[in-house]
Write a protein that binds this DNA or RNA. Structure first.
Lengths: 197, 197
DNA sequence: ATATCGTTTGACCAAATCGTCAAACCATTT
DNA sequence: AAATGGTTTGACGATTTGGTCAAACGATAT
């Protein structure tokens, strides 16, 4: 079952519209127009608005979820690990609207429960890793959850709140996004400096 | 013209509903139910959905906007200033949904333009301050915009993405919000450590 | 008791919107 | 050229929703 060309155009259009208007605000006609087809054709490919929405939502969720659990402790130096992880975060957030996901999870909290129910049991992978480093006297003696929040926040926020920060820093959108490319490395530096003993 | 009791109940209900559903997704009937009045009464106080929405939006905007321009350089030590500023940020973000604002600005970019047009001319206040500190050799030689982003991100993100981070850190909502109380001070510490020479 | 005036509401309307369906379209096979 | 089967669409129905309005309500003054 290969995804046809029309299907791809629809998904692209749906991403664009759903990201801005959300499930309730989006209009099927608007998505159809954006994809260059009729509303009836749209329903031919995806039976209902919710079916289409779920496709986008799940696609995004599959990219985001791993970021909350990946950390393998192989004994190597921790600093390159932090740097690499934060670049991974930024790479995903650059092309995946977390804003869209958060907004939808607020509207329908059940969606989150389903995704997280499985992971609830194991402890957070990064927290466990940092505690090991702390025990070995390699890092500062601080609550690891603070750094978990910091890494995510530093990487995600600039993309989430582009509208405001772009204006606050007196930059044009293009200029701002270019800047974020070099920003990530410095954000990683911030985290590393504050972890060091 | 004092704000009557009914008016307050409506505004409270509207905040609740708009924050979750957005302008397009929110239903006037839903807001009326939440406020315990009829839909007709709701229209008696606020002629239209957009009028009511703008009231909430402007109220939030007035709290957020100052956070992007306040910084007075009186020559005192910079570290307490950073700490104080980040606590201010957290205080506002705790009770003002930035998510709501960002979402709406994406939907209607014109709203942002109006708010920022005036400030565009002057340079960002924090950036100017940090450059002065740098010239005086008091801080690390880094792009100040990175720290501007960092301070905002560290304070705002934990509140914006409560749904995910709360689950990722294996905490209950109540526990998580309590944790954020002590988090802010440590987040400020992160920024200060990374600014130091 | 009656009038006055701000408040509240059930009933209603017009517009928007999701989803359906039969007919048209078109490429490929027979 | 006729048949087949997947694709596309205009038109339509059912429902939802923002907003209106005349009538009812209730407190206060006359």
């Amino acid at each position: 079952m290969e995804t046809t060309d029309a299907e791809k155009r629809i998904l692209k259009a749906a991403r664009k519209v759903f990201e801005v208007d959300g499930l309730t605000g989006a209009r099927m006609q608007h998505i159809a127009d954006e994809a260059g087809i009729s509303k009836a054709s749209l329903h031919y490919y995806f039976r209902s608005k919710e079916k289409l929405f779920d496709k986008i939502f799940d696609e995004y969720m599959e990219r985001i979820i791993p970021l909350f659990s990946t950390w393998h402790d192989d004994g190597d130096d921790w600093q390159p690990k932090v740097r690499k992880f934060m670049h991974q975060l930024a790479d995903v957030f650059r092309e995946t609207s977390v804003l869209f996901l958060i907004q939808e999870m607020r509207r329908d909290p059940e969606k989150l429960e389903v995704q997280l129910a499985a992971k609830r049991k194991k402890p957070n992978a990064f927290v466990a890793y940092y505690q090991r480093l702390r025990k070995d006297g390699l890092v500062r003696d601080t609550d690891p959850r603070v750094f978990a929040l910091a890494m995510h926040g530093l990487c995600a926020y600039p993309y989430i709140n582009e509208p405001m920060m772009c204006g606050a820093l007196r930059m044009k959108p293009k200029e701002y996004l270019d800047f974020l490319g070099s920003y990530v490395e410095q954000a990683a530096e911030i985290v590393i400096l504050s972890m060091k003993k």
